[in-house]
Design a protein around this nucleic acid. Structure first.
Lengths: 238, 238
DNA sequence: GCAAAAGTGTTCGGGCTACACCCATGA
DNA sequence: TCATGGGTGTAGCCCGAACACTTTTGC
């Protein structure tokens, strides 16, 4: 904020207002066992002991909220440059019963295979299917719900789902991911057709046999083609 | 934020972190003289004297960011319950050269006719066409651009544009609004057809003759029909 | 009577939807 | 050989895009 007649840039002036703790909470999605999961902490202290919460931290003096979120994610997962998007700033005065805290929520998508599970568990976190993650503390349920909605909207207008799959994946895997995100079945012929006509996938000529006896072709996401695609604009429409 | 192992709810604990000023900035849209305008302040003090800025204020101890935005709007415009949506939290450490401030930006849509212009000017604000509003202070250009993008996306998926018109309006007026938002001409036959088949407008049987010699029928937005419409889901697609 | 804006239908093509059978393989 | 999941083509429909002329009335 700034620029209204009753603001000035001197610290003296701003000091008439109160400062507030600014936190970050991350809704971290991963696709595991054919199910959409989020990374959660189980609280091991009172109050709310045993209840689950999102992963979070505070914004420090010299970092942006975005940087703070990346720091928290790096610290927890050991992974740099995670896909991250700001979701919403939650700021009800009583949202944290301890003290006034405004939290900027981010959602993150990560390739679960990249994750060192021991590292994560050392930090006290663990995956939990989104559908089982009822009853989080504070307003974290609302954050999770909003993140899921955002993910659903985004996945329609860009191939965001790729962020959740390994670099090499099969079309049935991708379809299964989309079916999980939308909690809805898609026609496999139409799904495949749609994707292939977008022309953003590169077939690798190799089959993955873990999913079936016949095996399914592995594909890779072609970033160049995708960027061209984005520039020309498109919609997913499932 | 909360719940990670290294957080607790005692004030004592949080006190290890630093508090930050949290501000609100509002991008206030109005449709005036067939052009999309935003409400701005012209800075009358150094530094940045003469430069324009958005309308803003600080979040107070016991109000949510949303409440703060409504308070700032009410104070400036005298209008309650303005259409308001959170846009983004801007928090680069150096965004405000005076001091560390994180700003939660909101965009607002208001019916410019409802506005008491003297009241607004008393507060030092004035309308400025979006396209002429280059060169705002700080990161306000980015805020304005992001707000415009959001408005464009929203106006596709719901009749948000109605918030910018008088309660009674003609279809050519509405089309003109959409053409301004998208900086693009639409076919009047298709536009009209699309809207009328949505069945959310109520014709009032009265003509408005200010726009042309022939006069155009006035319509009113039918909230009940619209709500039904929303529940059933739709897309605008212009 | 003419200028200026409002109002009105039809045609075409592209994309989404629905739908059913064969293929390859491991057990 | 059979069970399991992978892969393929077509027809109908709906919706958006393109397109031009008549109507009303103030001047």
């Amino acid at each position: 904020m700034a620029g209204s007649r009753d603001t000035d840039k001197t610290d003296k002036f701003y000091s008439g207002y109160s400062k507030i703790f600014v936190a970050i909470d991350c809704i971290i999605f991963g696709f595991i066992n054919n199910d959409l999961n989020i990374l959660l902490f189980k609280r091991d202290i009172e109050p709310e002991k045993g209840k689950l919460s999102l992963i979070g931290g505070f914004v420090q003096e010299k970092e942006s909220p975005e940087d703070a979120a990346q720091r928290i994610l790096l610290n927890l997962t050991g992974i740099k440059d995670v896909f991250l998007e700001q979701l919403f700033a939650f700021g009800e005065p009583e949202r944290d019963p301890g003290e006034r805290v405004i939290s900027v929520a981010y959602y993150a998508l990560l390739k679960a295979q990249d994750l060192d599970n021991e590292h994560v568990e050392l930090h006290g976190a663990r995956w939990c299917p989104v559908n089982d993650s009822t009853d989080l503390i504070f307003d974290h349920n609302e954050m999770r719900d909003r993140a899921l909605l955002r993910l659903q909207r985004r996945a329609k207008s860009r191939p965001i789902g790729f962020e959740l799959l390994p670099r090499k994946f099969t079309i049935p895997q991708l379809q299964s991911l989309y079916e999980t995100i939308y909690q809805k079945k898609f026609d496999n012929r139409n799904f495949r057709k749609k994707l292939l006509t977008m022309n953003i996938l590169e077939q690798l000529g190799v089959k993955d046999k873990t999913g079936s006896k016949k095996g399914a072709y592995l594909y890779r996401f072609d970033k160049e083609k995708y960027d061209r695609f984005l520039r020309e604009g498109f919609l997913f429409n499932l």
